[in-house]
């Protein structure tokens, strides 16, 4: 089966990211495919490239990266929700006259249309909020 996940919960504030990652591991272990993770609402903070958690806690951004690297999962961040919350890639940072950027590949800023596509083009979309 082809799965997509929608993550609305902020990292370390809520269980959402942890649960989503465990679910991702479980579905991949059973031979399913995880095509897309879409980050919306406070979930956009999962992409924060300066995330620096204490060493005895899971590094959530690195966990997402390993999904992209090992399973070709696309990590898509809603651009409207992201910009409001200070999640800017290099291009958006330049466009808004900001120094530095807070989001980079393999995370990508995309429109909400990608959430709609992920919802309809996969066998299942599971929301973690």
């Amino acid at each position: 089966m082809r799965y997509a996940l929608a993550v609305y919960g902020g990292p370390y504030s809520q269980q959402a990211s942890h649960s989503a990652l465990r679910f991702a591991d479980a579905l991949l272990a059973r031979g399913h495919q995880l095509t897309t993770v879409f980050f919306y609402h406070d979930g956009v903070y999962n992409a924060a490239n300066m995330m620096a958690p204490p060493q005895d806690e899971p590094h959530l951004r690195d966990r997402w990266l390993s999904l992209a690297e090992n399973h070709a999962t696309r990590l898509q961040v809603c651009v409207a929700a992201g910009l409001r919350r200070g999640m800017l890639d290099e291009r958006e940072a330049a466009r808004h006259g900001k120094q530095g950027h807070t989001l980079e590949a393999p995370f990508e800023l995309t429109g909400l249309g990608q959430l709609v596509e992920a919802t309809l083009d996969n066998d299942h979309l599971i929301t973690f909020a």
Binding site: Y40, A80, G111, L112, G113, L115, V116, E117, T119
Partner: peptide
């Protein structure tokens, strides 16, 4: 906003 984008698609 998600609903409106889906409708726009």
């Amino acid at each position: 906003e998600a609903a409106m984008v889906a409708a726009a698609f």
